[in-house]
Structures are given as C-alpha cells and as structure tokens.
Design a protein around this nucleic acid. Structure first.
Lengths: 192, 192, 192, 192
DNA sequence: GATGAATGAGCATTCATTCAT
DNA sequence: CATGAATGAATGCTCATTCAT
C-alpha cells in the first residue's frame, strides 16, 4: 500500500525538480506550489523560505552520500579495489541521485566564501578518510612517496570529469573508463 | 600615460567584479552602474541586458584562453613536458583571469542542455588537440594503450580539483603539486 | 445594503475614470492603483497589463450597447419611429456610458488596421440590421431608391456630430435636435 | 531642379509618417531621427519636443484646409452646388492630406478639454460660415425652417462616416455616395 | 550647424511574504 | 491544516532631454 505523499514531500519533490530544471534562482515559489499542487500558505507552513527548502534537500543528499561511502569504501581494501570502489561510489551516488548531486554543485557556486566553506564540511570527512587511506598505503609501502592529497585530487577530478562530460555532452562513462582511470592512477601512462 | 577607461570598459569591469562577488543572478543592473559610476541609460547604450554583458566577458575569456594554449602547448613536446605545460597553462589561465574563469564555470551550471553544449564549443578544440596528442603518443609507443580521452579527463579533473580547493578552502596549489600530478599520470602511484 | 465593491471592480472603475480623463497612454498603472486604493500586486493579480484591463472595459461597453439596441430598435417600427429610436438609443448609450463610449472611440485610433477592423466587429451586426431595415423600407415603397448604406451613414454621422459637439464644446444636443435631424433625413431641407 | 530637403523637412516628414503609422504616443524621438537619418541634437535644434513638431504639422494641415475651402465653397452658390462642394472639399482635403487629417483627428482625442477646444478654433470659422450659408438660405426661402446647425451637423457627420468607413473597412466613398447624401439632405428619404 | 554619448526620472512587471478566512 | 487575496519593495528597461565636441 503506497502511502499518500504528504504536502511537505510534494513540495520537496517539486523544489528538486524545478531547481534542477531551471536553476535555483529562476525557480519561484509560485512555480513550486503549482508543481506541488498546493496553496501558497502551505509552503510557508513547512518552510521559512526557498533557501530552507533547499537546505532540506541538501541534507537528504548528504545522508545518502554518507551511507553509500560507508557501505562501499573500507580501509581494509587493497589499493586497486579501493580506488575502484571510491570512484565507482562517487560516480554512482552523484548519478543515482543525479539531480541532487548536480543541484548541490550548482548551488554552491553562487555562495560567498564563508558559506562555500560551510557547504564543504559534510563532504570533508570522506575526503579526509580517503587521504588517510593513501597516507597509510604509503607507510605500508603499497604506493610511492607522493602527497596523498594529490591522489585524492585525481580521483575527485576524474569523478568531476566523467560527470561533466555526461552532463554537458550526454556521453556517459563506462566500466572500461573506470578501469582505465584506476589503471592510470596505479601504473601511469608511460610505457615501462 | 594611463589611458582613460571608457564607460563600456568600466561597466564590463564592474560586471566582472560583481558577478564574481555575488553571483550573476544576485547582481542587479543598479549594482553594476553604481560600481561603474554611470547612469542607467549608459548601461543600455552598450548592452542589451545583463546577459549580453556577460556574453562579452565570456568572449574575452575565451580569447585569452586560446592565446595561452596556443603559446604554451605544442604537439612537438615530449610527454612530461606536454603534461606539465597543459596543466600549468590551464591552471594559470583560470587563476590569472581567475574571476573570469570561475564566472564561466558558475554561469554554465544554470543553463539548459543546449546552451550548455554551446558554451563548451570554444573550449572543445583544445581538448580535441590534447586527445590527439595522446593518440599520437600511443602510436609512437610513448605511452601505453589507454583510451586517450581518459588521460585528458585526468588532466582536466586535476585542474578542477586544484581550482576548487583554492576557491573553496583557499588552499592554492604549488609547483610540487603539479609535479606530483604529472608524475602520477606518467608513472602511477604503485611501487614498482 | 450597498454591496462592497471588489478590488477588481475598483480597478476597472479607476481605469475607466483615468483613461477618460487623461487618455490611455498617459494613464500609468501607478495612477490606477492609487485611484483604486490598492497595491501594485493586486493589479497584476487581475490583469495581465493595461491593455487587458482596457479589453475588459470594452467588453462591458459592447454588452451594454447590444442590450440597448435590442430593446429599442425593431424592424416592425415605422420609419420615423425607427429613425428616432436609433438616433436616440445611439446617443443615449454613448452618453449614458459616455466615458466608455468615448474611450472606445479614442482607443481605436491608435490601433493598426487589423485590430481596427476587429474592434468594429461587435458593432457591425447593428449597422447591418439597420441597413436591412432601410433596404426593406425601400422594397415596401416607404422610402425612395437610395443606397441604404448612405442612410445609415447619416445616422451614424449625426450621432458622431452631436457627441463631438458635446465633448469638445460642451454643447449637449436637445430633443429638438433629434427631431430636426430625423425630419431632415425623412423630408430633406429643401422647401417643397 | 528638385531642391534637396533640409533636415527640418526630413524630420517633419518622418514625424508625419510615424505618427500615422504607430500613433503619436508610440512614436519615439529615436524613431523619428532614425527615419530622418539625422542626429538627436538636430531634432532639438529645430523642435522643442515631440509636441512642437506635431504642432507644426497641424499648422500645415490647417493652412491647406483653409485654402481649399476658400477656393471651393462660396456663399453665392446654389444649395445643391454648395452642399456638394462642401462635402466634396471636406472629403478631398481629409483624404488628399489623409495622414495629416487622421493625425489631427487621432491626436485631439487624447487632449484635455481646454486643449480640445483650442484645437477646434482654426476649423470653427469654416463651420460658422457654413451655418451662415444655411441661415441665409432659410431667410431666402431656399430651405425650410430648420436649425441650421443641424444641417451642418449632417454634413460633418457624413464626412466622418465616409472617412471612417474608408479608414476602418477600406471601403472608399464614390461620387454616387456623395450625390446620394446631398440628395437625402435636400429631399429626404421618404417617398413623396 | 550637426552630432551622439551620457543621463536619470519614470514606468511596467515580478515575486517573496503576510494574514484573514 | 490549508488556502489564496493582498501587498509593495525590488528590478529591468525606456526614452525625452542635455551638452561637450
């Protein structure tokens, strides 16, 4: 028995749809309530304003992201396995909840420096964990002496590249692309 | 003898400053003319609207980007040299004209799919050239058989990562970071 | 118990008053809302723009005009009676709802040919009916063989003259004027 | 040898063209100078503002009107001849200089009562003369005892009707229409 | 004379927010 | 709980007018 959606859920969904479709700034509250098929007063019953609806959407995303990373990336994994898991998870979460991921991405561009830093904080722990994985791998002799942050950078960067290429050119990434990327990061491109 | 700036130049500068400071949507034309110290009519003498001022700024950026890439990255370069030149140039252009670079980046998030594709086109030639460089390098036996697009992806991705880290956390990249990144792409992280 | 006027009614009235007083073009929406004592948003809740408020006023006028003509002019009337009824009705409607009548008149001068033709269409049926009355009167031998359209022309023309004289010189027409005019149309000015 | 048009003449012509095409209010000074192919300063050298350009156009029209009436309508004429001449002249002047005639007509609708009266004054002398012709005709026994103003009214009204029908429906009047109208005014429509 | 860059008052329109029902 | 009429500050844009060259 599919539970009937509450007005609040309808509004959140409408906000997500419209923010993604037309951008945050260009979406009006009138748009949202029309999409959610409810009155203006109802919007203000559940949300203080557009920003606060956005904040709730972002919370949802952060929760999902955390769950997925916890489930898939462990410090006990081998290097190749870990790299693959991290890249795969990042890509999957951003794609599976694509609209939320994009939304977060778009939104934070228009914030001032302080808000921008704040918006990073729920993501940071995972990046720190990742860095620690590589730091650890260096001390174990699994990888060469390289600033571990730059390894993280390549993974994040590759994620960004694949998503952007998909977003802008509608060219989705394949399993082979991930494999290739992990291969480059592990072994480099140069012929031995 | 410092040439007196024209009203149009003042407006372009004001637009750039403010778009970067407060975002495109939140910058009003009143803001721009106050910053440029001129009347409202003057704005509309030179620009049809805010979008058209933005478009001129973007043209400026594309021109600068093209010039820098042409000057610094040549197909005759060796692999290491090329990777370093590409990464350095990308980073420098985006940073030197940082506000323009960021602006372009921010702005395109709020466009529909078609405009998004269009906004890519002036950048594409350089990405294609880069891919061709790697394709060529494979046939010469300089690098292993890897989809050259994924190599491009790592360079673009790394650029993005360094800029974002700077933008969001105010942690600028160093020459060592670039060296590290080139090293990883060439030789991989794994111990031999 | 005088029913309270709705905001929309107040706006329509204010529009009518002001269009007549200062002309359509010179009346601003600020004028209208000040006159109607309501906020700017309220105007845009009920009307898309000034033109659409005007269109509603014109509809009102056309409805009133139709009702009056239907009530007062019948094909069964004798010639003198019909001429008097037509002239009287036209004059009364335009005067009773004087401001609306004048307004329509003023407004249509500034329209392009197509809109001008369109603006005629709700009036045309009554002119056609009138022409048919005279056509019929000719075949019955009541009036001489004269292009019936020219008879209609004289009635419309006389209406226009009386209204303009009133409007411009503040010299209203009298019952005697109507009688005279009907007399001329029936019997001519020449001595027998 | 066709003299080259002066800038002022070009501006007057442009004003006339555009006022007629788009109405007085909707014509901007920018439109006018573009049409006349001259600079903005030049407009203000010759005219104080749009109204003063209009006033010059109206003067032109009044002069033409006066000349034509003086040439064609004389108190020595017989009744039929006079009626025909008056109607013909009015129609011809308004049509021949159609745009000027229409323009005057359109413009005066948007004036306040005082300006409206003022705008009548250059026309009034001819209407007064006409009334005097009929007053005189009554005393000579040429026409019946009828308020002469109402006869004038029918002539002016018929003029208006023919011009409006042409303007709105693009149905121009014929010589037969004029003949008919004169016939009605002289002899009435009723069968003897 | 002729020009057009610069101006800003004025106007239409949008949209977040409030509040009585 | 839910609604939507009412609001007005904020914003984009137009256009008559001025004035230095």
């Amino acid at each position: 028995m599919p539970k009937r959606k509450t007005k609040k859920e309808l509004l959140l969904e409408a906000g997500l749809d419209l923010f993604c479709e037309k951008g945050f700034e260009k979406t009006t509250i009138d748009d949202i309530i029309a999409h959610a098929d409810c009155g203006k007063g109802t919007f203000y019953r559940y949300f203080e304003n557009k920003d606060s609806l956005y904040a709730e959407l972002e919370n949802e995303f952060n929760t999902l992201f955390r769950q997925e990373v916890n489930k898939n990336c462990h410090s006990s994994m081998g290097l190749k396995q870990y790299l693959t898991a991290a890249l795969t998870t990042f890509l999957r979460v951003f794609r599976q909840y694509q609209r939320l991921g994009m939304l977060r991405f778009m939104r934070e561009q228009s914030l001032g420096p302080d808000l921008r830093k704040a918006s990073l904080s729920p993501i940071m722990p995972y990046l720190v964990e990742m860095r620690d994985y590589f730091k650890n791998a260096i001390s174990k002799g699994l990888i060469r002496h390289i600033n571990p942050e730059n390894v993280v950078g390549l993974i994040i960067g590759a994620t960004h590249f694949f998503l952007m290429r998909d977003f802008k050119l509608e060219l989705p990434y394949s399993a082979k692309d991930i494999e290739d990327t992990v291969d480059i990061i592990m072994n480099g491109v140069a012929t031995p």
